[in-house]
Amino acid sequence: MAIVAQSSKYGDIGRAILAWAVGLLFFFPIFWLVLTSFKTDADAVKPEFLFFFTPTLENYLNMTENYDYWRFATNSVITSVFATVFALAVGIPCAYAMAFKPTRGTKDLLMWMLSTKMLPAAAVLYPMTFLTKSLGLFDTHFMVIVVLMLINLPIVIWMLFTYFKEIPKEIIEAGQMDGVNTWGEIREILIPLAWGGIASTALLCFIFCWNEAYWTVRLTTTEAATLSKLIEGNRAPEGLFFGRLSAVSAAAVGPIIVLGWFCQKQLVQGLTFGAVK
């Protein structure tokens, strides 16, 4: 170990500087977005105000007037929250059965669920539009919730399964001895024990729902339109509205980035289906 520590002081300093440079470089576009959001639309495109300018909150205060931000934000919150809750409600019993009462088919079932995630969304674009329109569900919260829940259900079940698997079977079986029924087992033993895992699964599911940008754009127009749709609809301001567009964009991604910081570790598990540890 002595040799490692000795290796070179300058090398370590150089490495730290380089690491910081890389981190700042990757964060720079987000910093730039936030910085631009405090400039007026006129200042935002002037080179002389690149870094030094009179900051203004105008863009944030006028978000409702300019973009009707809160309506889209409310839709994003409603659809993401309900989709997450429903995904958990369906996913928890399923993952419970898979983890504690596995059968020979469990592995295949898990793989099949994962494979549904790999179906390219665009391939079923028209049938989905056709179905939602003919059922009168186009541009409704209900439809967005159902779709968001379904596209995230495989990941939710996988994540829950990997968490539940870690819980010793004996604890659950002890509950059975005491004559608790299945629902009681899930509610009184499993959920309190796996609370951390369930919370991070929910968080990740919520983030994925919030950022979803295919179905939320194609299956809505105004009523159930989410923030993805709002930003997509204002895609090319040609420099006219850089300030206000930055503000609404920052407001759309800010909360999620902060949430994301809290579930970095779970992200690895959730996205690699437990294959990288």
């Binding site: 964060f27 930003i231 991604v253």
Partner: peptide
């Protein structure tokens, strides 16, 4: 934390 942030930006933004 700085480095992971871009991953959570929604595609449209």
């Amino acid at each position: 934390v700085l480095l992971i942030s871009p991953f959570f930006v929604m595609p449209a933004v």
